[in-house]
Design a protein around this nucleic acid. Structure first.
Lengths: 333, 333
DNA sequence: ACGTCTGTTGCACTCGCTTGCATATAGGCG
DNA sequence: CGCCTATATGCAAGCGAGTGCAACAGACGT
């Protein structure tokens, strides 16, 4: 335990020949300080390398400036993207992101929220998993804001941000149908996340309305490797699908690579593929994946804007649309 | 500003019928509390939903438990990976990661470190950019630990973690040479980061020792799109290279896609490509990229371990090797 | 019974900062 | 010149926790 020696407001006050309050006021926007005093304080602060202690300030103001990002699989393109957008926008709102990794099952989302409470975070943004009701209630009761992204369960006092997954999936079906596809498949992970299930249901529903049955396969996490397995299962079927809608782009990449390299299929001639998220790789020349873009910046914007608004007791919700990005993995367009 | 109502140690003390100190001691490992008192306190805390206020604790102990991660381009696979590893290992050491995004040039690394000081972060880990000496000195003087990853400039009291970039690049050359390549190129970004330059120099140096000159092209950021441009420049040269070593995998992906789709070259038959980082995409079937793996977990491990050790005044350094991962983008192997 | 030692407990001070309140100073006006 | 108002400043009381110190209780040895 090294002894940290930070310079405090008292040190600055002594050097500037003013009271501690004057220093405090100098660094509090809107407080009443004369130009002369402010100058002296700033000068002394500069010389001493003084920085307001946000811990102490947070203690007094009951507002830490910390916002908790609760997320697993940070290294996944879509997640990383969202984290970047959120951290940037939070910084613009002079808040700062605390990152809590919930990859390990024992470090659950509940623990993460407990930690958020311990640090008196102004808000928590949940990108992965679903916390227990008892703990979210405690958060809200403590006055902490709660944002759930693509989580879909109701929570008192929280903001839920969701996409029109069903509608997007419906549009995907129509695109495939127009492209002349006949045998449809949906490649999903077995995670059972609400948004993933909504995409599946929307796709199947739309097909059913056209009197068409969809082959659904579910396996593993929403990652490339699962896409490989899913493709192997789907493409060895007797009636080989000629259209696969994947629950997300990572799966789609795995499906495409497997279709091409293992099954020697041409895309989009032998097989049409579409995905969801519009991760960077979707635009790479090897994939040219038709997909639905998550409005990452909009999501972050909505979340941060809501944090700035006064608290309301009932739960708010925000539904955004995913834009269809046409690329070469589906015929026509 | 909503009124937050957190339950404090006083509330717990009242309910448990003990003094506030007793509550404090119950949650301080190693403090002297009787079994009976502890039981009463824990019970009351549970009932009230009490959580120690880490802000206040940090204020007293002068140790916030916060570690600042300073990084730009979080959405890049290698960075995202490193952040995941770091945040996980920090959590294991019961520290918590504050994420500071330095994408915007006006929010520079210096500002980020200032913020770290304000929050009395126990340490800062710099993954991007290079802070000014005056500010790192202030950090160290304040007792804050400083870790620089792949940054290569000396800073008093900081830990520098670097890779044997030169040696890796040398091995890349040898691999190409053994594969029978004749015309060598190096595709770099124009960022001029020390580690990128070290790779370039190592590669060129090794070639020179074999009496071979390397064509070096530098452009843009270390991203896919730059790889596309670099490939276009390199592959339209009169003496078209038959081996390209890319400063990182993202560039390599761009180079490979462009070589294949735009120039109709077969890899590795017409062109050998190697990269650096071993991002997930490198193992995808479309790329099968031979590359050097950054020991991400090791880096995180070293950083976190160093934070646990007592402070020493001079700067420590840690050099790790990047393992060569053989895949299909280079002949032989 | 007395002294001593060990283990618990509470008081009160401290960390660095914000802020309500009282006071001091300057400026404007009749 | 006196009065009122507006702005500036300092004092001191917190915010929620950790911890040295002294008081105290109980166990033990002689």
């Amino acid at each position: 335990m090294s002894r940290k020696i930070f310079v405090s407001a008292k040190d600055v006050a002594d050097r500037a020949g003013v009271s501690r309050s004057a220093v405090s006021r100098t660094f509090t926007p809107g407080a009443s300080v004369s130009e002369e005093t402010r100058r002296k304080v700033v000068e002394a602060a500069e010389a001493l390398g003084y920085h307001v202690n946000h811990l102490a300030r947070g203690l007094m103001r009951n507002e830490s400036g910390l916002v908790c990002l609760i997320v697993s699989e940070i290294d996944t393109p879509y997640r990383a993207n969202l984290i970047r957008a959120l951290s940037r926008q939070l910084q613009n709102a002079s808040k700062i992101a605390m990152l809590i990794n919930t990859d390990r099952p024992d470090k659950s989302v509940d623990d993460a929220l407990r930690l958020a409470i311990s640090y008196r975070a102004d808000a928590s943004i949940v990108l992965s998993g679903m916390p227990d009701k008892s703990i979210t209630d405690l958060c809200v009761k403590s006055g902490q804001r709660l944002v759930l992204i693509n989580r879909d369960e109701q929570r008192e006092g929280a903001l839920m941000i969701n996409l029109h997954d069903r509608e997007a999936a419906r549009r995907a079906f129509i695109a495939f149908h127009r492209a002349g596809c006949r045998r449809f498949a949906f490649a999903n992970s077995d995670a059972g996340t609400p948004s993933l299930m909504a995409r599946e249901e929307g796709f199947c529903q739309a097909a059913r309305e056209h009197g068409i049955e969809v082959v659904v396969e579910r396996f593993g996490a929403t990652r490339y490797q699962s896409g490989v397995t899913l493709a192997q299962r789907l493409l060895t079927r007797e009636a080989r699908p000629d259209a696969i809608f994947c629950a997300n782009d990572l799966l789609a990449c795995g499906v495409m690579d497997t279709a091409r390299h293992q099954f020697k299929l041409a895309i989009p001639d032998d097989l049409c593929v579409a995905g969801f998220d519009d991760i960077e790789q979707a635009s790479w020349a090897s994939y040219q994946l038709t997909t639905f873009a998550q409005p990452v910046e909009r999501i972050a914007e909505e979340a941060v804007a809501w944090l700035g608004q006064p608290m309301v007791s009932d739960n708010s919700s925000c539904k955004l649309s995913a834009e269809l990005i046409w690329r070469g993995s589906v015929r026509g367009g």
